[in-house]
Design a protein around this nucleic acid. Structure first.
Length: 586
RNA sequence: CGGGGCGUAGCGCAGUCCGGUUUAGCGCACCUGCUUUGGGAGCAGGGGGUCGCCGGUUCGAAUCCGGCCGCCCCGACCA
């Protein structure tokens, strides 16, 4: 490609709308342009990177037996009625009538579509297991998109779906897929992506993991153990609650006039917040029971955990309902509440402490010496607490720390949620009708582009890994008028291209600094500079964008030499990186 | 949907408070010519704008008032 013909301008200045470095560089380098909030066009360099990433994903999906398919973006509502999601998903699902008034939707994920496709093609256990995948546009009308390509409304996603005859088979394939994901992220230049336990969320299902690139600009929060390999999304992260055992003392009512909050009560009684019980109320559903959550006073409730227990989004309960259930807001206790109208959930932290202060269900009174096991028999402690920085790791003696990250992929063991709802069946060895067990596996392509830039860039532009660089080699011809420069550069460009090297040739008659700045923005890992100065010595100059290493090389056979370098790094990026590092330190 | 910020040429901005010398300006980018040629060159000339949209106030609106739209950030939310 000749740079003089490349579509897309590059900017010297950082666009005002970009807050993330990756977003700013994507705009400055002419990779993407925003069309509307969370909706982008890709210019040639951006598309080339996307295609490279997609190619790597394809190879790894094919390697684990995946078969590529392509399903529509527009689906009829009937498919989503079958799963129930047409009604259960909120406004992020774009719904619209077609010409005849038929309700249609833009797919935000393709479970319904893939089950619809595969149920007609699967009849025997002998066909299982299999995995199909696609690289397709999704649309999610996010409440708020942000951060360039990090969180958008329209995006390209690789989504894969596997079908199995047994849970064990799914679990085994899930691990295979996890390894394929690790290879994908390593190959695109993100070997440090962390595998994290996550919340199956609206997907439903048994187990789920996210692939998180730990970085401060991420929007997910992850609990990471400083000692062992425990990593979990904040929504599911557990910590080991501290135990504060004491000899149980009898319940005792105390006067606490006007003291309603944990802080007020603790201060008034001269105790620590951790010596109290906090009561939080949620509506279980519009008609159903009230949910009362008990947790140690210094901790907070993790509502994602509550959601899993009550199987719906928890909404803070209205005061009227709390009172109707017999509790007194500000002075609430679970003792004596009618458990047929009120579900009581108690966090482990409450069980691990004795002689806590709780409400007395009477205005201006609390109770001392609450002991869960004694005072609320039958209430089984569970984990509903938010992890805090410095909490004890649930699996080792280490500490948990909350870090930010970008979710670049996720995998779910879905089970039979969709196959059952949509009546996908096959016949097993015994002639019985069975329902396949599903897994699904997603990777966001555009988000990966941003993530790679976040990790690999400097003030001047991205430093693309060779595997996904829009061009592998950037040829600069300095001063086309100088003797020999143009001829040599043109020949080099032709030879490199003929050798299969993806080459961007800056054939513009402009100053060196101008060319170098554009080269930095376009980020090709290898740069070759043709100048009069070096030609006098029958040499070319080279520079590595990622390591900053520079050197001279003989003009003779230069294209062949460079092609060899590119091939070498493509085949073994790690060794080359170490080699470069050694050169740098030497 | 709540809170905050912004909307003037492809990009970055000034001008808006306090209406009128502003034919609406500056830098980058772009076009022409000459001089330059190793980290975003210099000089000279040039093109490009319904000042987000609609309405109102006024002799006169980028500027004041009302409504709407869009974009960015924070929050709620998120296979």
């Amino acid at each position: 490609m000749r740079l003089s013909q490349l579509v897309g301008n590059r900017y010297k200045e950082r666009p005002a709308e970009a807050t993330l470095d990756s977003h700013a560089l994507l705009l400055r380098g002419g990779y993407v342009r925003q069309v509307a909030n969370g909706i982008y066009s890709l210019l040639p360099p951006g598309l080339r990177v996307a295609r490279k990433i997609e190619g790597i994903i394809r190879e790894e999906m094919n390697r684990i037996g995946g078969q590529e398919v392509l399903m529509p973006v527009v689906l009829p509502r009937e498919l989503w009625d079958e799963s129930g999601r047409y009604d259960s998903v909120g406004t992020e699902l774009a719904r619209f009538p077609d010409r005849t008034g038929h309700d249609m939707l833009l797919a935000m994920t393709h479970e319904e579509a893939v089950v619809n496709l595969c149920r007609g093609e699967t009849s025997s256990y002998a066909q299982l297991p299999f995995m199909v995948y696609q690289i397709q546009t999704k649309f999610r009308d996010e409440l708020r998109s942000r951060g360039g390509l990090i969180r958008v409304r329209e995006f390209t996603m690789k989504d894969a779906y596997s079908f199995h005859a047994s849970q064990d088979d799914l679990r085994a394939y899930y691990d295979v897929c996890m390894n394929a994901y690790r290879r994908i992220f390593a190959r695109v230049g993100l070997p440090e992506v962390a595998v994290v336990e996550s919340d199956p969320g609206m997907m439903g299902g048994l187990a789920a993991h996210e692939f998180i690139l730990l970085t401060d600009v991420g929007e997910d929060t992850i609990a990471v153990c400083d000692t062992c390999s425990y990593r979990a999304n904040f929504e599911v992260a557990k910590s080991r609650p501290e135990a504060y055992p004491e000899e149980p003392k009898p319940l005792e009512k105390v006067h606490t006039p006007g003291k309603k909050t944990i802080e007020e009560v603790a201060a008034f009684l001269g105790i620590e917040p951790r010596q109290t019980v906090k009561a939080v109320f949620y509506d279980a559903d519009n008609q159903g029971k009230l949910v009362m959550v008990l947790i140690r006073g210094d901790l907070d409730v993790n509502e994602a955990k509550i959601a899993r227990h009550i199987q719906r989004e928890p909404a803070p309960a209205e005061e009227i309902r709390i009172v109707a259930a017999g509790a007194v807001p500000g002075y609430a206790t679970a003792i004596g509440l009618d458990r047929t109208t009120c579900t009581i959930l108690a966090d482990h932290s409450v069980a691990e402490s004795d002689n806590l202060v709780c409400g007395a269900n009477e205005v201006d009174y609390h109770m001392r010496n609450f002991n869960l096991e004694r005072d609320l028999p039958g209430v089984t402690p569970m984990d509903v607490a938010q992890v805090r920085d410095g909490d004890a790791c649930p699996v080792c003696e280490g500490r948990l720390w909350l870090r930010r990250g970008i979710e670049v992929g996720n995998i779910f063991q879905l089970g039979t949620k969709y196959t059952e709802a949509m009546a996908m069946t096959y016949t097993d060895e015994n002639g019985e009708t069975c329902i396949p067990i599903m897994g699904c596996y997603g990777i966001g392509v555009g988000r990966l582009i941003s993530a790679v830039i976040e990790i690999h860039h400097d003030d001047y532009g991205p430093k693309w890994p060779v595997s996904i660089a829009p061009w592998q080699v950037h040829v600069n011809a300095l001063n086309l008028a100088a003797s020999g420069v143009k001829d040599v550069a043109e020949t080099l460009y032709t030879q490199l291209t003929d050798a299969g090297v993806e080459t961007l040739y800056d054939d513009r008659d402009c100053r060196a600094g101008f060319q170098f700045a554009d080269a930095d923005l376009l980020g090709a890992p290898f740069r070759v500079i043709v100048s009069e100065r070096n030609l006098k010595k029958d040499q070319l100059e080279w520079k590595r964008r990622d390591t900053g290493d520079t050197g001279a090389m003989p003009l003779e056979n230069a294209a062949h030499t460079i092609a060899g370098w590119v091939k070498e790094v493509l085949e073994n990026p790690q060794s080359r990186r170490e080699e470069s590092a050694q050169q740098t330190t030497a």
